[in-house]
Design a protein around this nucleic acid. Structure first.
Lengths: 139, 139
DNA sequence: GTAAGTGCAAACGGTTTGCAGCCTC
DNA sequence: GAGGCTGCAAACCGTTTGCACTTAC
Protein backbone atom coordinates (compact mmCIF):
# COMPACT_ATOMS: atom_id res chain seq x y z
CA UNK A 1 0.00 0.00 0.00
CA UNK A 2 2.82 2.32 -0.89
CA UNK A 3 1.80 5.78 -1.96
CA UNK A 4 3.93 8.18 -3.85
CA UNK A 5 4.61 10.89 -1.36
CA UNK A 6 6.93 12.88 -3.51
CA UNK A 7 5.10 15.93 -4.72
CA UNK A 8 8.46 17.44 -4.08
CA UNK A 9 9.40 17.34 -7.69
CA UNK A 10 10.78 20.78 -7.48
CA UNK A 11 12.29 20.27 -4.04
CA UNK A 12 15.83 19.38 -3.24
CA UNK A 13 16.51 16.00 -1.76
CA UNK A 14 18.21 16.01 1.58
CA UNK A 15 18.91 13.34 4.15
CA UNK A 16 16.10 14.74 6.28
CA UNK A 17 13.47 15.07 3.62
CA UNK A 18 14.18 11.59 2.34
CA UNK A 19 13.87 10.09 5.84
CA UNK A 20 10.64 11.98 6.47
CA UNK A 21 9.02 11.07 3.17
CA UNK A 22 10.01 7.43 3.48
CA UNK A 23 8.67 7.29 6.99
CA UNK A 24 5.38 8.89 6.06
CA UNK A 25 4.94 6.62 3.07
CA UNK A 26 5.13 3.62 5.37
CA UNK A 27 3.11 4.97 8.28
CA UNK A 28 -0.26 3.29 8.55
CA UNK A 29 -1.92 5.47 11.10
CA UNK A 30 -2.54 9.06 12.09
CA UNK A 31 0.48 10.68 13.66
CA UNK A 32 1.06 14.06 15.22
CA UNK A 33 4.00 16.11 14.04
CA UNK A 34 5.66 15.45 17.35
CA UNK A 35 5.19 11.70 17.03
CA UNK A 36 6.69 11.76 13.57
CA UNK A 37 9.59 13.75 14.91
CA UNK A 38 10.11 11.36 17.81
CA UNK A 39 9.88 8.26 15.62
CA UNK A 40 12.41 9.63 13.17
CA UNK A 41 14.79 10.38 16.01
CA UNK A 42 14.28 6.91 17.40
CA UNK A 43 15.31 5.43 14.10
CA UNK A 44 18.35 7.62 13.95
CA UNK A 45 17.25 10.41 11.64
CA UNK A 46 18.06 13.58 13.48
CA UNK A 47 15.57 15.93 11.94
CA UNK A 48 14.43 19.12 13.65
CA UNK A 49 10.82 19.50 14.71
CA UNK A 50 10.59 22.73 12.75
CA UNK A 51 11.62 20.89 9.62
CA UNK A 52 8.96 18.25 10.21
CA UNK A 53 6.37 21.00 10.44
CA UNK A 54 7.72 22.71 7.35
CA UNK A 55 7.44 19.51 5.34
CA UNK A 56 4.02 18.61 6.66
CA UNK A 57 2.74 22.06 5.77
CA UNK A 58 4.15 21.66 2.30
CA UNK A 59 2.76 18.14 1.88
CA UNK A 60 -0.67 19.15 3.09
CA UNK A 61 -0.70 22.04 0.66
CA UNK A 62 0.21 19.71 -2.17
CA UNK A 63 -2.45 17.23 -1.11
CA UNK A 64 -0.04 14.40 -0.44
CA UNK A 65 -0.98 14.38 3.22
CA UNK A 66 -4.27 14.89 5.06
CA UNK A 67 -4.64 16.76 8.33
CA UNK A 68 -7.02 15.66 11.04
CA UNK A 69 -7.75 18.18 13.73
CA UNK A 70 -8.37 16.57 17.09
CA UNK A 71 -10.53 17.89 19.88
CA UNK A 72 -7.57 19.02 21.89
CA UNK A 73 -6.36 21.16 19.03
CA UNK A 74 -3.52 18.88 18.06
CA UNK A 75 -3.23 18.01 14.40
CA UNK A 76 -2.52 14.53 13.12
CA UNK A 77 -1.30 13.68 9.67
CA UNK A 78 -1.95 10.75 7.36
CA UNK A 79 -1.04 9.94 3.82
CA UNK A 80 -3.73 11.44 1.72
CA UNK A 81 -5.69 9.11 -0.42
CA UNK A 82 -7.38 10.16 -3.59
CA UNK A 83 -10.77 9.09 -2.37
CA UNK A 84 -12.50 10.88 0.46
CA UNK A 85 -12.75 8.90 3.68
CA UNK A 86 -13.38 9.18 7.39
CA UNK A 87 -11.78 7.88 10.52
CA UNK A 88 -12.91 5.39 13.10
CA UNK A 89 -10.91 6.10 16.22
CA UNK A 90 -10.57 3.98 19.34
CA UNK A 91 -11.01 6.15 22.41
CA UNK A 92 -8.73 3.93 24.38
CA UNK A 93 -5.76 3.02 22.19
CA UNK A 94 -6.08 5.68 19.54
CA UNK A 95 -5.80 3.30 16.63
CA UNK A 96 -7.36 4.72 13.49
CA UNK A 97 -9.25 2.86 10.82
CA UNK A 98 -10.27 4.45 7.58
CA UNK A 99 -13.91 4.11 6.68
CA UNK A 100 -15.84 5.45 3.77
CA UNK A 101 -19.39 5.47 2.62
CA UNK A 102 -20.75 7.22 -0.41
CA UNK A 103 -24.14 7.51 1.24
CA UNK A 104 -22.86 9.94 3.81
CA UNK A 105 -21.08 11.93 1.16
CA UNK A 106 -24.25 12.21 -0.84
CA UNK A 107 -26.36 13.01 2.16
CA UNK A 108 -24.18 15.88 3.38
CA UNK A 109 -24.08 17.49 -0.03
CA UNK A 110 -27.81 17.10 -0.40
CA UNK A 111 -28.67 18.56 2.98
CA UNK A 112 -26.26 21.44 2.56
CA UNK A 113 -27.49 22.22 -0.90
CA UNK A 114 -31.07 22.18 0.30
CA UNK A 115 -30.05 24.74 2.92
CA UNK A 116 -28.60 26.94 0.22
CA UNK A 117 -24.98 26.06 0.78
CA UNK A 118 -22.45 25.54 -1.99
CA UNK A 119 -18.89 24.31 -2.15
CA UNK A 120 -19.72 21.70 0.47
CA UNK A 121 -17.22 19.67 2.42
CA UNK A 122 -17.48 17.83 5.69
CA UNK A 123 -15.59 16.27 8.53
CA UNK A 124 -16.80 13.08 10.15
CA UNK A 125 -15.04 11.11 12.82
CA UNK A 126 -16.48 8.10 14.59
CA UNK A 127 -15.31 7.25 18.08
CA UNK A 128 -15.69 4.00 19.95
CA UNK A 129 -13.89 1.39 21.96
CA UNK A 130 -12.27 -1.33 19.90
CA UNK A 131 -12.70 -5.00 20.73
CA UNK A 132 -9.14 -5.38 21.96
CA UNK A 133 -9.47 -2.56 24.45
CA UNK A 134 -12.86 -3.73 25.57
CA UNK A 135 -11.60 -7.22 26.19
CA UNK A 136 -8.65 -6.12 28.25
CA UNK A 137 -10.46 -3.72 30.48
CA UNK A 138 -13.92 -2.26 30.04
CA UNK A 139 -13.31 -0.36 33.27
CA UNK B 1 -35.48 30.31 19.59
CA UNK B 2 -34.40 30.91 23.12
CA UNK B 3 -32.65 28.03 24.79
CA UNK B 4 -32.20 27.60 28.46
CA UNK B 5 -28.52 28.02 28.95
CA UNK B 6 -28.62 27.77 32.67
CA UNK B 7 -27.39 24.36 33.65
CA UNK B 8 -25.81 26.41 36.33
CA UNK B 9 -28.45 25.47 38.83
CA UNK B 10 -25.80 24.92 41.40
CA UNK B 11 -23.75 27.90 40.32
CA UNK B 12 -23.74 31.32 41.84
CA UNK B 13 -25.08 34.16 39.80
CA UNK B 14 -22.69 37.00 39.19
CA UNK B 15 -22.76 40.02 36.94
CA UNK B 16 -20.30 38.31 34.65
CA UNK B 17 -21.97 34.94 34.43
CA UNK B 18 -25.34 36.53 33.80
CA UNK B 19 -23.94 38.67 31.00
CA UNK B 20 -22.19 35.70 29.45
CA UNK B 21 -25.17 33.36 29.62
CA UNK B 22 -27.53 35.99 28.28
CA UNK B 23 -25.18 36.73 25.44
CA UNK B 24 -24.73 33.08 24.54
CA UNK B 25 -28.45 32.42 24.68
CA UNK B 26 -28.98 35.09 22.06
CA UNK B 27 -26.02 34.29 19.86
CA UNK B 28 -27.06 32.59 16.66
CA UNK B 29 -23.72 31.65 15.29
CA UNK B 30 -20.43 29.98 16.18
CA UNK B 31 -18.16 32.23 18.16
CA UNK B 32 -14.66 31.81 19.43
CA UNK B 33 -13.96 32.44 23.09
CA UNK B 34 -12.10 35.57 22.11
CA UNK B 35 -15.00 36.84 20.03
CA UNK B 36 -17.39 36.28 22.90
CA UNK B 37 -14.99 38.11 25.19
CA UNK B 38 -14.64 41.02 22.77
CA UNK B 39 -18.39 41.29 22.21
CA UNK B 40 -19.11 41.32 25.91
CA UNK B 41 -16.56 44.05 26.41
CA UNK B 42 -18.03 46.03 23.54
CA UNK B 43 -21.40 45.94 25.24
CA UNK B 44 -19.90 47.06 28.51
CA UNK B 45 -19.57 43.78 30.40
CA UNK B 46 -16.03 43.73 31.64
CA UNK B 47 -15.48 40.03 31.93
CA UNK B 48 -12.02 38.48 31.88
CA UNK B 49 -11.03 36.16 29.07
CA UNK B 50 -10.12 33.49 31.58
CA UNK B 51 -13.62 33.64 33.00
CA UNK B 52 -15.10 33.23 29.54
CA UNK B 53 -13.02 30.11 29.07
CA UNK B 54 -13.96 28.79 32.48
CA UNK B 55 -17.66 29.18 31.72
CA UNK B 56 -17.39 27.73 28.27
CA UNK B 57 -15.60 24.70 29.65
CA UNK B 58 -18.30 24.26 32.23
CA UNK B 59 -21.13 24.74 29.74
CA UNK B 60 -19.58 22.30 27.33
CA UNK B 61 -19.22 19.73 30.07
CA UNK B 62 -22.86 20.18 31.03
CA UNK B 63 -23.92 19.91 27.41
CA UNK B 64 -25.44 23.38 27.24
CA UNK B 65 -22.90 24.41 24.66
CA UNK B 66 -21.26 22.54 21.80
CA UNK B 67 -17.65 22.96 20.77
CA UNK B 68 -16.64 22.98 17.17
CA UNK B 69 -12.97 22.54 16.42
CA UNK B 70 -11.82 24.44 13.37
CA UNK B 71 -9.00 23.58 11.04
CA UNK B 72 -6.73 26.21 12.48
CA UNK B 73 -7.06 24.71 15.93
CA UNK B 74 -9.32 27.43 17.23
CA UNK B 75 -12.48 26.32 18.98
CA UNK B 76 -15.87 27.88 18.41
CA UNK B 77 -18.88 27.56 20.64
CA UNK B 78 -22.63 27.33 19.99
CA UNK B 79 -25.69 26.65 22.05
CA UNK B 80 -26.22 22.94 22.22
CA UNK B 81 -29.55 21.16 22.13
CA UNK B 82 -30.66 18.03 23.91
CA UNK B 83 -31.14 15.86 20.87
CA UNK B 84 -28.10 14.75 18.96
CA UNK B 85 -27.44 16.84 15.87
CA UNK B 86 -24.76 18.13 13.60
CA UNK B 87 -23.70 21.51 12.35
CA UNK B 88 -23.80 23.06 8.96
CA UNK B 89 -21.33 25.91 9.09
CA UNK B 90 -20.79 28.72 6.62
CA UNK B 91 -17.10 29.12 5.96
CA UNK B 92 -17.54 32.78 5.30
CA UNK B 93 -19.89 34.21 7.92
CA UNK B 94 -19.75 31.42 10.47
CA UNK B 95 -23.50 31.10 10.70
CA UNK B 96 -24.52 27.71 12.02
CA UNK B 97 -27.52 25.61 11.16
CA UNK B 98 -28.37 22.50 13.06
CA UNK B 99 -29.03 19.43 10.98
CA UNK B 100 -29.84 15.90 11.92
CA UNK B 101 -30.40 12.68 10.12
CA UNK B 102 -31.10 9.30 11.67
CA UNK B 103 -29.54 7.58 8.70
CA UNK B 104 -26.10 8.89 9.51
CA UNK B 105 -26.55 7.93 13.14
CA UNK B 106 -27.48 4.42 12.17
CA UNK B 107 -24.74 4.11 9.63
CA UNK B 108 -21.94 5.15 11.96
CA UNK B 109 -23.06 2.71 14.62
CA UNK B 110 -23.35 -0.06 12.09
CA UNK B 111 -19.93 0.50 10.54
CA UNK B 112 -18.26 0.84 13.92
CA UNK B 113 -19.94 -2.26 15.27
CA UNK B 114 -18.91 -4.22 12.23
CA UNK B 115 -15.34 -3.14 12.92
CA UNK B 116 -15.64 -4.44 16.45
CA UNK B 117 -16.19 -1.11 18.14
CA UNK B 118 -18.62 -0.51 20.98
CA UNK B 119 -19.89 2.54 22.78
CA UNK B 120 -19.97 4.44 19.52
CA UNK B 121 -20.31 8.17 19.13
CA UNK B 122 -19.44 10.49 16.30
CA UNK B 123 -18.76 14.05 15.29
CA UNK B 124 -19.91 15.40 11.97
CA UNK B 125 -19.63 18.93 10.73
CA UNK B 126 -20.57 20.08 7.26
CA UNK B 127 -18.91 23.16 5.83
CA UNK B 128 -20.02 25.25 2.91
CA UNK B 129 -20.72 28.74 1.71
CA UNK B 130 -24.21 29.98 2.39
CA UNK B 131 -26.31 31.67 -0.26
CA UNK B 132 -26.02 35.09 1.34
CA UNK B 133 -22.23 35.00 1.34
CA UNK B 134 -22.11 33.58 -2.14
CA UNK B 135 -24.37 36.27 -3.45
CA UNK B 136 -22.39 39.11 -1.96
CA UNK B 137 -19.01 38.01 -3.11
CA UNK B 138 -18.12 34.64 -4.57
CA UNK B 139 -14.62 35.99 -5.17
C1' DG C 1 -18.66 33.69 57.27
C1' DT C 2 -17.49 30.63 53.62
C1' DA C 3 -16.58 28.96 49.43
C1' DA C 4 -17.62 29.83 44.62
C1' DG C 5 -16.52 33.12 41.12
C1' DT C 6 -13.26 36.44 39.20
C1' DG C 7 -9.14 39.00 37.37
C1' DC C 8 -4.51 39.11 36.43
C1' DA C 9 -0.55 37.45 34.74
C1' DA C 10 2.34 33.78 34.16
C1' DA C 11 2.64 29.17 32.34
C1' DC C 12 1.70 25.83 28.77
C1' DG C 13 1.77 23.25 24.46
C1' DG C 14 1.53 23.03 19.76
C1' DT C 15 3.04 25.52 15.84
C1' DT C 16 5.52 29.15 13.20
C1' DT C 17 9.34 32.08 12.02
C1' DG C 18 13.94 34.74 11.69
C1' DC C 19 18.36 33.97 10.83
C1' DA C 20 22.83 32.04 10.17
C1' DG C 21 25.06 28.11 8.29
C1' DC C 22 25.03 23.88 5.42
C1' DC C 23 24.58 21.24 1.38
C1' DT C 24 22.25 20.01 -3.03
C1' DC C 25 22.09 20.86 -7.61
C1' DG D 1 28.42 29.42 -6.47
C1' DA D 2 23.52 30.35 -5.51
C1' DG D 3 19.65 29.41 -3.35
C1' DG D 4 16.87 25.99 -1.12
C1' DC D 5 16.89 23.28 3.24
C1' DT D 6 17.95 22.82 8.04
C1' DG D 7 18.63 23.61 13.00
C1' DC D 8 18.13 26.41 16.81
C1' DA D 9 15.76 29.22 19.65
C1' DA D 10 12.68 32.73 20.23
C1' DA D 11 8.18 34.26 19.09
C1' DC D 12 3.24 33.31 18.63
C1' DC D 13 -1.37 32.32 19.85
C1' DG D 14 -5.08 30.11 21.86
C1' DT D 15 -5.96 28.14 26.19
C1' DT D 16 -5.20 26.84 31.09
C1' DT D 17 -3.86 27.62 35.80
C1' DG D 18 -2.20 29.56 40.44
C1' DC D 19 -3.23 32.78 43.55
C1' DA D 20 -5.10 36.53 45.93
C1' DC D 21 -9.27 39.17 46.05
C1' DT D 22 -14.25 39.80 45.68
C1' DT D 23 -18.88 38.69 46.28
C1' DA D 24 -23.18 35.82 46.26
C1' DC D 25 -25.56 33.12 49.26
Amino acid sequence: MRVDLAPARESRQTVQSRALLTFLAQADRCLTAQEIHAQLHRQGSGIALATVYRWLTRLVRSGAVDVLMHDDGEATYVRGSDRHHHHLVCRSCGRVTEISEPMVERWTVEVATRAGFADVSHALTVFGTCSACRGSGPS
